[in-house]
Nucleic acid binder design. Structure first.
Length: 133
DNA sequence: GCCAACGTTGGC
DNA sequence: GCCAACGTTGGC
C-alpha cells in the first residue's frame, strides 16, 4: 500500500467533482517526476486530494482504481501516463498553513517542490493529513 | 498582480 | 552540451 498526494485546481477539477463523477482518469500530467510516481501506482493505493490556488488545502481521500496506462489526452505521445481514481471520502480540511506549522510534516515534498503535482506521502504524513492520527 | 521556482525550447 | 529566453505553476 502506497500513499500519494494529488494536486488539482478546484476551479478546474475538484474533489467534489470526483465525488459527483464517481471515477475519473487523472490525466494531463506532463512532468517526468510526476509521471514516474504515477507509474509506481497500484490499484488500492490511497491519494489525498489537494486543492491549489485559493483553497490551498487537502480536502479528501481518493483511491487508485487502475494500473497506470497511457494518457488518453496525449494519444500521439506515449511518454505520459494516467490512472483512474475513485473518491473514498471527504476529510476535515487540512490547510497548507497547518502543514507548514506541523512539526512532522516539514519534509513532505509539497513544501519542497511546490510545483510538483503528483508526489508520494509517507504513511505517517498521510495519517496526519487525513486526520487519522 | 507579482515573483520565485522550475521546466522546456532553441540557438550556438 | 551550454545557456538565454520564455512559459507555467502556485503562493503571497
Amino acid at each position: 500500500m502506497q500513499y500519494f498526494l494529488l494536486k488539482t485546481e478546484p476551479e478546474t477539477f475538484s474533489f467534489d467533482d470526483l465525488v459527483s463523477k464517481g471515477k475519473e482518469h487523472w490525466d494531463g500530467v506532463r512532468n517526468y517526476q510526476a509521471r514516474n510516481f504515477i507509474q509506481s501506482m497500484q490499484p488500492g493505493d490511497l491519494c489525498l486530494i489537494y486543492h491549489s490556488g485559493k483553497e490551498k488545502a487537502v480536502v479528501g481521500i481518493a483511491a487508485v482504481d487502475s494500473l497506470p496506462y497511457p494518457d488518453p489526452t496525449s494519444p500521439d505521445d506515449p511518454r505520459w501516463l494516467c490512472v483512474d481514481v475513485i473518491p473514498v471520502k471527504p476529510i476535515a480540511v487540512f490547510s497548507l498553513e497547518q502543514i507548514k506549522n506541523h512539526i512532522d510534516l516539514q519534509d513532505i515534498m509539497l513544501l519542497k517542490q511546490s510545483r510538483l503535482s503528483v508526489m508520494p506521502l509517507s504513511k505517517k504524513a498521510f495519517e496526519i493529513l487525513s486526520g487519522g492520527v
